[in-house]
Amino acid sequence: MLKMFSTQTTGLFKKIMDGEEFAFEDCARLLAQASIGDGTIYLHGFGEMKGILSEAFEGVEPFPNVMVLYDDNEELASLTNADRVLFFTRSSDDSEALSLAKYLQEEGVPFTAVSTLVPSSGLSLDELADVHIDLRLQKGLVPDDNGKRVGFPSLMVALFAYYGIRFTLDEILQEYGEE
């Protein structure tokens, strides 16, 4: 089962790389505006995607020029239109993420949402975000003995997208001599 999971994960990574290449660039450009200008990049993860914060702040290579969007008391940072927000959630119809997206849009704060695009009868993150990156993880990657799909690596796939954004941002900042 692990070999099948590995193969499916590799295929999913390739789909993300191929399908979201321009979105990675657009996101990195958006974030670079804050790094190069007077803004701050704010990062957030909903649910299991909070694991992104551990990598960004405590990993071997911390994300440059980034701060948490919510403090330990769940208070939202004071944002300006010079700031940029990057957040991760499992699906594009996540109600908490949609509330944040609506708020950011109303306040004129540009943001990127990273999630799996799912059919929705209402608003979706891909409609609200300045940039949306689709994780393309619709169901578990491997069938179990009963035919049920298991192995839903949402955080792993989000970390792959995180690194796609990070590497692209690093390239842009190096061009501008900011890194």
Rank of each mutant, 00 (worst) to 15 (best):
E179Q: 14
D93V: 09
S99I: 09
V150T: 13
S124G: 11
F88S: 02
L76D: 04
L128N: 05
S6W: 10
E107F: 02
L2F: 13
L100N: 01
E175H: 09
E178H: 08
S99Y: 05
E107I: 05
F57H: 07
E106W: 07
S99E: 11
T7N: 12
I36N: 07
E48K: 13
I52C: 02
A23T: 00
S92M: 01
L53P: 04
G177S: 00
H132P: 02
A161Y: 03
F63H: 05
G45W: 05
A23W: 01
P153A: 02
L86H: 01
L31A: 00
I172V: 05
T40N: 11
L100C: 03
E20F: 00
Q174T: 14
R166L: 14
F13E: 07
D144H: 08
M49H: 13
R90M: 10
V109H: 04
G122H: 04
K148L: 12
N146M: 12
V150P: 03
F167K: 11
E179W: 13
L159K: 00
L155T: 06
L100Y: 03
F22Y: 12
F88N: 01
F46E: 06
S121L: 14
D26L: 10
L137F: 00
I172W: 00
Q33T: 14
S121K: 14
L12K: 03
D38H: 15
V114W: 01
P119S: 14
N81R: 10
G147S: 04
A161N: 04
E175N: 11
G11N: 11
G19H: 06
S91F: 10
N65T: 10
D144V: 09
R149H: 12
P62T: 05
F24S: 05
L123N: 08
D130L: 06
V85N: 03
